[in-house]
Amino acid sequence: MTSQTLTSAAPARPSTAESSLQRSRQRMAWLLVAPALVVLLAIAGLPLARTLWLSLTDAQLSDLSTRQFVGLANYIGDAGVLADPEWWGAVKNTLWFSLLSVSLETVLGLAVALMLNHPSRLKTLLRAAVLVPWAIPTVVSAKMWTWMLHDQFGVINAMLLALGLIHQPLAWTADPDLAFTTIVLVDVWKTTPFMALLILAALQMVPSDCYEAAKVDGVPKWSVFLNITLPLITPAVLVAMIFRTLDALRVFDLIYVMTSNSRTTKSMSVYVREQLIDFQLAGYGSAAATLLFLMIALITVSYMALARRRMEGH
């Protein structure tokens, strides 16, 4: 099939023809990528540029035409985002949230992955059950948990009271001390399956001869885990953690639906939307949005630089 047809169709002067073939192929490649690039430019690139531009003005959402250039006043300066204690509160909330969620999800995800990896007849059923929280839309999860954690009629308080673990119903979403914990709890419930699946995939890629060799040598199970399994899955786990962290830093849906604009749980995204939509401050809100974007971009770019070096090394 191959060489016959190739040589019969081969032109007289191979080098120039091949390079022109290559060049036409490269042109075609750019043409093929163009639609995707155009779409992304239109819905991501241009709006981002617009946000950056708006952040340098005092625009109001209700009347974008009557805006004036104010330079960096929305950022630094007395009335700027960086001077707003609520912004810093949102930053703190978001960072804490990300730290707690991602660590918990990784540890629990590892445990669940090990469990799913254990040979058993229940494997498929378990995996299906574990996937259920992930399949439920975030808004629905938020509503379900809000109902379960309802201080008067919620089933969680009822159970805890019946077990004697608490003496009065807890105000899970109202009590400033508890609200944050509640948000983390629901997020962990929802996203652990995702981490568990990723870690499970990594576990399954560990070559079985490693384990067999260890068995032959009589290495105890916990040592196998610590010294063989963990190091081998660490790269994959780190990748998953980074993706999850970037997601957690952008959290909006869960917090908005469960505790709306409450200060104790406000994330950066919720803060931006509040400034933008509730207060109609297009300029100021865009500045906050830009700051959030820069934070995420910094982490993303650093990760990519590292990843690219790894990829090019292959």
């Binding site: 709006p47 952008r250 995204s269 949005a289």
Partner: peptide, 16 residues
């Protein structure tokens, strides 16, 4: 292209 998926939604909200 991968980086675009990391944009916070609120960052492009007003532009969109």
């Amino acid at each position: 292209i991968l980086g675009v998926s990391m944009f916070p939604q609120v960052a492009i909200l007003s532009g969109l």
